[in-house]
């Protein structure tokens, strides 16, 4: 017959101009996790920035909620190849959190409840590029998506946007976090398709 059905071979993936290379568009919000989902009572939540000299700046949940918040709409790109466009978040800019922190560190290690870590250069957290977000799509951030609060660094692959964040260690030298130590790229720019070490 010469007619080849296009209906087989798996779910068709939507091709959208403007997606980073190798990505496909999704409209749901896949949950990826490397371990049990921690349930953090708000009265035990704390976010601490530790400088390279050991100085600490810390907020409990009430203090954190009192900080000026921003509403942002951003595209997110997971290294497992899904992208989600126009996601809306509310959170505190890292510019605000780092405003009164004295440091000359060029690198940071993001820490989470449950032990997850990921490294992000300092300049990628500043100038309106990153937030500690506690609302998604107008609702409190669910534990499966990183609630009570997660990092959102949308210009890097989403494994850098650590769920359940509880701190930031400022560092003079770059060091690998959880996935970077296991083979993923140290920086993770989706537009340069920096998925694995050596990409």
């Amino acid at each position: 017959m010469g007619i080849i059905s296009r209906g087989f071979g798996g779910r068709r993936r939507e091709s959208v101009p403007g997606l980073p290379p190798g990505q496909y568009l999704t409209h749901d919000f896949p949950v990826l996790s490397a371990g049990p989902t921690p349930r953090i009572p708000l009265d035990r939540w704390r976010f601490t920035i530790t400088t390279e000299t050991g100085d600490k700046t810390s907020w409990n949940w009430t203090e954190f909620q009192a900080l000026p918040a921003e509403d942002v709409t951003v595209d997110i790109h997971c290294v497992t190849k899904w992208s989600k466009l126009g996601t809306t978040w509310r959170g505190v800019s890292l510019d605000t959190l780092l405003e009164d922190v004295e440091s000359s560190a060029d690198y940071t290690m993001v820490h989470s409840f449950g032990g997850y870590t990921t490294n992000v250069p300092m300049e990628d957290l500043l100038d309106g590029k990153a937030w500690v977000a506690y609302k998604f799509d107008g609702e409190d951030l669910e534990p499966e998506h990183g609630g009570p609060a997660r990092l959102v660094v949308p210009h890097l692959y989403f494994w850098k946007s650590a769920k359940w964040v509880n701190g930031l260690q400022l560092m003079g030298d770059d060091e690998p976090g959880f996935w970077e130590a296991a083979g993923y790229h140290m920086y993770g720019d989706p537009w340069r398709e920096q998925r694995y070490q050596g990409d």
């Binding site: 949950v31 990826l32 996790s33 490397a34 371990g35 997971c78 497992t80 494994w159």
Partner: peptide, 10 residues
């Protein structure tokens, strides 16, 4: 844990 960027065995 397999629904993640890699396999994580705990």
């Amino acid at each position: 844990w397999h629904q993640s960027p890699g396999l994580v065995a705990r």
